[in-house]
């Protein structure tokens, strides 16, 4: 029983990363109809950002948590303005290629500079364990889970309780119609893209103290995250977050009971979901 719960908790912690990344992808897809293939690379840049800030500027974890997502948000907005925006009128394939290309360039640049082995990060904000009642659990992992849940809830409140949130949800559901109601949706596109990228950066910083920081870390993770987004429903913020945590737990339990299936379980689930509900668990059929 304890090992079951412990494994469930491990799942929630990896789900924390899936949820943050899927959330960013969902927000971006909703507003821009662009699947950001560079999302994994931006997560990796977030982790490297934390390492570089620590090593060369002597700025610790908390600084990284603040500065790296902000810097990546700016980079993301520049990327949207200078590149993505030029292609949105064309076939979506062009932005697939563009963002995929950006991901490859980022990965290779870091591989040239750091090689492919992992970089140590020794600015972990705290070590030790906390007593969760039935078992002790690493304090940092509990912190990651708490931050992820808090960020997801905050984004949810932002989307459902504020004017900006209403505009973003309206633009997500019916982009063309929203323009006909007097809202310049393009004005919101760049900030929303930057915000989604910042979430990837935040996930990257959170990963630095507990995961291997190397040029492949994003590519390894993002494939699962795409499956998460498809299962939750493309563009569904709620679905992405729920699916993120659920799939984290599914993988962890798979590890415990059916180790052979732990990696494939996500894709099996994705196949089943696509057969039964092609728009994903919480997705809606696209309007014209």
């Amino acid at each position: 029983m304890t090992s079951f719960l412990q494994q469930l908790f491990n799942g929630l912690v990896s789900g924390s990363f899936y949820a943050l990344l899927a959330l960013g992808l969902a927000v971006i897809f909703g507003m821009l109809r662009v699947v950001n293939f560079a999302h994994g690379a931006l997560y990796m840049l977030g982790a490297f950002g934390a390492v570089v800030l620590g090593d060369s500027a002597g700025l610790g974890f908390w600084w990284a948590l603040l500065l790296v997502p902000a810097a990546l948000a700016v980079a993301g907005m520049a990327m949207e303005r200078l590149l993505v925006q030029r292609l949105t009128a064309l076939d979506p394939l062009y932005n697939f290629l563009l963002t995929f290309g950006i991901a490859l360039v980022c990965q290779d640049l870091l591989r040239m500079k750091y090689g492919s082995h992992s970089q140590p990060y020794d600015h972990a904000p705290f070590s030790g364990t906390v007593d969760l009642g039935l078992f002790d659990y690493p304090a940092y992992q509990v912190f990651v889970l708490a931050v992820s849940v808090a960020v997801c809830v905050a984004v949810w409140l932002l989307l459902t309780r504020t004017r900006i949130g209403t505009v973003v949800r309206a633009s997500t559901e019916r982009p063309e119609l929203t323009r006909a109601f007097g809202i310049d949706t393009r004005r919101w596109v760049t900030p929303v893209f930057g915000f989604g990228v910042a979430l990837a950066g935040l996930a990257g910083v959170l990963a630095a103290p507990m995961r291997a920081v190397n040029s492949d870390m994003g590519a390894d993770l993002i494939i699962t995250v795409f499956a998460v987004v498809v299962i939750g429903g493309l563009g569904s913020v709620f679905g992405s977050v729920i699916a993120g945590f659920a799939i984290g737990m599914l993988q962890a339990l798979g590890n415990l009971y059916v180790p052979v299936l732990s990696q494939t379980s996500v894709y099996l689930l994705m196949a089943v979901v696509l057969l039964v509900r092609p728009a994903g668990l919480f997705g809606k059929e696209e309007h014209a």
Partner: peptide, 22 residues
């Protein structure tokens, strides 16, 4: 389109244009 709306054009599309999620 958004500037036309602000000049006083009001659009009621053929599918009513209701946001299901709002």
């Amino acid at each position: 389109a958004h500037r036309r709306a602000r000049l006083g054009l009001g659009y009621v599309p053929d599918d009513r244009g209701i946001y299901a999620g709002l």
